[in-house]
Design a protein around this nucleic acid. Sequence first.
DNA 1: CGCCAGGTTTAGTCTAGTCTAAGTATTCAT
DNA 2: ATGAATACTTAGACTAGACTAAACCTGGCG
Lengths: 226, 226
Amino acid sequence: MPKLSRSKQDYLKALYALGPEGEAVVTSRLALRLAVSPPSVTHMLGQLAAQRLVTHAPRAGARLTAKGRREAVEMVRRHRILETFLVRVLGFDWSEVHDDAEILEHHISDRVLEAIDRLMGHPAEDPHGHPIPDRRGRVRRRDLEPLSSLRRGARATVREIRDADGPRMARWKQTGLVPGAQVRVREVRALDDVFEIEVGGKRVVTGSEGLEGLMVESAKGGPRGQ
Amino acid sequence: MPKLSRSKQDYLKALYALGPEGEAVVTSRLALRLAVSPPSVTHMLGQLAAQRLVTHAPRAGARLTAKGRREAVEMVRRHRILETFLVRVLGFDWSEVHDDAEILEHHISDRVLEAIDRLMGHPAEDPHGHPIPDRRGRVRRRDLEPLSSLRRGARATVREIRDADGPRMARWKQTGLVPGAQVRVREVRALDDVFEIEVGGKRVVTGSEGLEGLMVESAKGGPRGQ
DNA sequence: CGCCAGGTTTAGTCTAGTCTAAGTATTCAT
DNA sequence: ATGAATACTTAGACTAGACTAAACCTGGCG
Ligand SMILES: [Mn+2]
Ligand SMILES: [Mn+2]
Ligand SMILES: [Mn+2]
Ligand SMILES: [Mn+2]
C-alpha cells in the first residue's frame, strides 16, 4: 500500500470529523471544509472509493470504511501529538499551534512521531482537551455536550475546545473559557439568542454562535448516561 | 515572492553543495545527485533561471545567483538545525537523522524552526560537525581538508562527516571516526590505494573510497593557511 | 579536418490535484 | 404534476514535476 498523499489524508480526516461514526457526508460539506470546489471533491471521492477507503453512492454522500477510518484516526493522532509537542516542548500558545500541526502531520515519519510522543510521556489529551488516539487507533470516547445546549442554572466543566479558529480561541482564552474551567449558565434568552454565563466568577454574555465549538461535561450529579 | 516548492528548494541546495562558491554545475551531476533524469534538470533549471535564482547558459551548466544562494543557505540552516534537534532532543543517533531532516526542512514554518533553535540554545554545529549558518545566512568558513589527502605521519582532528550515507556513517562511528577524533596516518600505499590510520589507539585500514567524506583539521603546528 | 560518442536539450507524455463551465438528478413549491 | 431551484457530477482544461524518445551540439580522436 503506497502511503497516502497529503490531500487524501486531509480528505479522510475531514470525513472523520464530519461523520465520526461513519455517517454519510455530503459533497458540499466536504468542499466547504477543505476549501475546495465540489467537483474536486467528487473526483477525489472516486479515487478514495477505488482504494476502498470510503464508499460513495452518487448524490448520497460518502462514508468512511473501516480502513478509511483507521487512516483518519491515525492522522488525528498525529495532529494532536504535534499540537501537544508545540505547546509543551516548544512553548507555543494553544491558540496558535493548529496550522503548523495541520502541515507537519503529513510529513513526520512514524519514528519521529513516536519519539516525540515518548519524550512527552504519551499524553492522553492535546492542549485543546481532545483525546489523543493510542497507537492502535483506539479513541477514548467521552460524553460531552455543546456548552450552548445547556439550560439556565446548569453547571458544567469545559472539556474540549474546537481548535481550527484562531481568533475565536484567543477570545475564549481571554474570557477564561479554557479546558477545565467551571461554568454556570445564568440566563438563556433563546429568542434573542443571548447566553449569559458565569466562568470563574466573571459574567460573560454572548450569542450561541460565539460558543460554537465549546464542549462541556455536565455536572448534574456525577456522570450522566446519554 | 511565492514560497519555493520542495523540488526547487532541493535543486538549489544541490547546486550549493556541488558549487558552494558559485561554480557552474553541469546537468548530469545534478541529475545524479537528485536522482532525476537529465531532461528534468534542464527543465527545472529553466524555471529557476526565470526566477533569477540561477543563471543557465545552455550546455555550460548552471550557477547560483546571490538570491539563489541565499535560499540554498537557508535550506542548509534548516537541515542542520533539524538534524541537531533530532539528535539532541529526540535522542536519535547521528547516523540516522539525515533522511527525516531532508523532508522536514521543507515543511517546518519559520516560527517552529526558530523555536527549535532557541530551545537548543542556537547551536553552532550539527551532529556531523557541519557549521549551522546563522539567521542572516552567514556561514562560518573553515579550513579543512579531506582525510584521504593527508600524507604518512600527518596528525589531524576529524571535524566534519558527510551525512548522506547511512551505512558508511555507522561504520565510521564504529571505528571511532567521529567529529573530534584524533587521527594519525601510519601508512599510505598510493598504488594499492590503501590507507592505514590510527584513531584512538586503534589501527584502521581502508581504501581512499572508504574515507570519502571525512574532513579533518590538520594539526601541523597550529592553524595553517591554505 | 572531419566525424562520432557523449552529454544536453527539445518534444511529447503522464500523474495528481485542482479549477470552471456545462449537464443532470432531486427536491420542493406551486 | 410540472417546473424551478439547488446540489451533484461530468467534461475539459491547467499546473508542477517527473519520464522516455529523439534531435542536437561539441570536443576529442583519428
Ligand atoms: Mn488542531
Ligand atoms: Mn493537514
Ligand atoms: Mn543531512
Ligand atoms: Mn530535502
